[in-house]
Design a protein around this nucleic acid. Sequence first.
DNA 1: CCGATGACGCGCC
DNA 2: GGGCGCGCCATCG
Length: 111
Amino acid sequence: MNFFERVYQIVRKVPAGKVTTYGAIARSLGTKDARRVGQALHANPDEGEVPCHRVVDKDGRLAPNFAFSTKGRSAFGGDGWQEQRRRLLAEGVKFRDVIHVDLSKHLWKLE
DNA sequence: CCGATGACGCGCC
DNA sequence: GGGCGCGCCATCG
């Protein structure tokens, strides 16, 4: 099982209304390279199976260039984080401000 | 082959 | 707090 698959496996376990962070995932995989986790999600093969909008950075900030590039291009241009925010709000996630998730209430602890 | 890049994070100023 | 530099390492040009 490669790195990407392991990232997806973890993200799939995050329940609706909860979020996790790139760094937390990286550490649970035994690496400090959070950037590679981001790469994996950017190459996310199927949003339906991997709820990548539930992954934020360590400050709860949404991905500035969040986008589904699975088909080779981003579907939301440079404002993908807006789509990410909508999805989280729809799941009941609260925000500290327009782009920061309230981690103290929604951070999901990895197994 | 090599340098630049990036859905990140942390330490310093 | 905002901005900058560096480490990280697979990919890309």
